[in-house]
Amino acid sequence: MAYKISESALDAIIAGLSAQCAVYAPRLLAGWGTSSDVDIVGYAKIEKGSQIAFDKKSMYSFKEAILPISQTLFYFTEDEMREPRPAFAQAVVFLRGCELHGLSRLDDVYRADGKLDFYYEQLRSNTKFIVIGCEDGFESCFCESMGASGVPACDGYILSRGDGYVLISNFDELTDLVKAEKAEQIDFTPVPAKNTLKVNVPDEIPEEVATSPIWDEYDARCIICGRCNFVCPTCACFTMQDIFYDENVNAGERRRVWASCQIDGYTDIAGGIAFRKTKGERMRFKALHKLKDHKGRYGRNMCVGCGRCDDVCPEYISFSACVGKVAKACKEVGGNG
């Protein structure tokens, strides 16, 4: 059911939600940019509606709320182990439509074939997702081209308009709070986001594209910092860290942390071998994983066209431009892109 709500009603509703559970939303974080006196939007807990950043795209995605950047899986001693308490019992996460599409890609990986990842499930299945509506999107958005501009079924939807907000509630706790504000019911159907940026996305990518010269330019351009992976709502890779405490090596913990296929070490194996040494090779791996490999396994492109990797890249490498180059290369090698 859709409701028209005011700024103060939204404040009260979010205050009510945050009293019941953790509420995460894109929020303007003062001084959080890499350079001084730069504010950026990141994911953080909120207590009132006015803390939600409606007018800017978050730099990092919702992902960190349910897939922590650094997560202790268990603590161990000689013959015992125990898991830490989960980050939250219940949570509500506000996210953009592209990110909800991103969630389905994370589900592809962490819930593949009904084999549920325990730690992912612990947070993901206890989270309600409320989509922040985008009518026009932002400069770097290309969700339309990636087929991820629609609003999938979700627990709620909110759109900021000149005269307040439209809120759709699909779960009781939220509906109760909305009703307590005596919000007016309205007819409303969310519309897909529109983008000015259009990208030609190849349907099928022939193997030969891997050896195309399009990857070479990234050898010189990319600085393999991994920001593109860390802001991505679909990147699901992690790496393991086992720690034996200095004070007592019979106790320790096992952690998993986000990994990046761009950063040194990702393809290292015993014997000092690394498979993808050049930056171009790493860019190729990332691009083809997002546009081909994931699709081969799960039937849909991994990339949802949110454009966060474009926004964050300090070297101004655009993934949407790369998708265009891949499409062109497909034609050159005789594919059907």
């Binding site: 650094s70 910092c225 991994g226």
Partner: peptide
């Protein structure tokens, strides 16, 4: 000067 603020919970140990 800025005093670096470190949040270990956000660190992946990339070494950058």
């Amino acid at each position: 000067m800025t005093e670096p603020q470190y949040d270990a919970g956000r660190c992946v140990g990339c070494g950058g």
